[in-house]
Amino acid sequence: MKRVSYVLSAAWQGFWRNPVMSLASTFTVGLMLLLFAFFVATDRGLQAAVGVLESKVELALFLEDDARVSDVLALRTQIEADPAVSHVDYVTKDQAMARLVDIASRQSDIQIVDISSNPLPASLEIKLQNAQEAPRIGATLRQEIGKGVVHEVVDNPSVVDKLLTITRVLSFGGVAVLAMMLVVALFVIVNTIRIAVHARRDEIEIMKLVGATDWFVRWPFILEGMLVGALGAMAALTVVVLAAGPVTNALVGFLEIVPLSFGSAFLWQLVGSVFALALAVGGGGAMLSVRAHLAK
């Protein structure tokens, strides 16, 4: 295994022989991986949100936290009088939270971080005889907003549609941006390794003349590329860990959804795929470079 230690130390020396270039490519790869992690996490989060919403009812009235119960019950009776409505459920804040906890417990990739405060409103959930009546009833009920009882009317199918659209745009946009970043990262790695090959051209010449195999000549460079990838992955994951909290909070505030966090299974998947991509890009880029510059 002395062979391995020679190759490893050659790769390590190669990395630090030109630190500026190596760190620049590490940074580029890290940035690409960060975008990758962000897209994967966001996509997964939105899908979970869509799943939660789809399991819900057709029309919901979110109630003001300080609405009087008697007013709520009066409203409920009034709604039930409409022939298009099949029935109305009154869900209190506590029930809403209990239900969310229950949903989360059945979905392994979401966890509820913090249940000390309850941001969920109480609601009236309306099941319709006929889903096509939803816009009309929704419009009628929207007139109640601001009168002290109804905070918001949620036309559930439209929310789901909106989220699905966001998910779709994000994944198309994400794939496009990622593809561009991938090309940039490959380009930078190919160049870094080319410079490394150039810096060691005398050594390579002698290696070949004294009978080193092609792979023995190539491995240090491929490992150097993988090292760039792995360091980039560590940098990206460090940023992910540090930024996960604040970004989640910002998104929660922005999209007005309940704070969710990803379960450890998903986190390990994310770490695994980030590292796999990093090593593939680093090693692949180095391989391309070595093939072009050590062909002889």
């Binding site: 002395k2 020679y6 002698i206 004294v210 009978g211 080193a212 195999t213």
Partner: peptide
Amino acid sequence: GFALLVTGHSE
């Protein structure tokens, strides 16, 4: 020693 190390000999 380089000639031996790069042809797979131990240190």
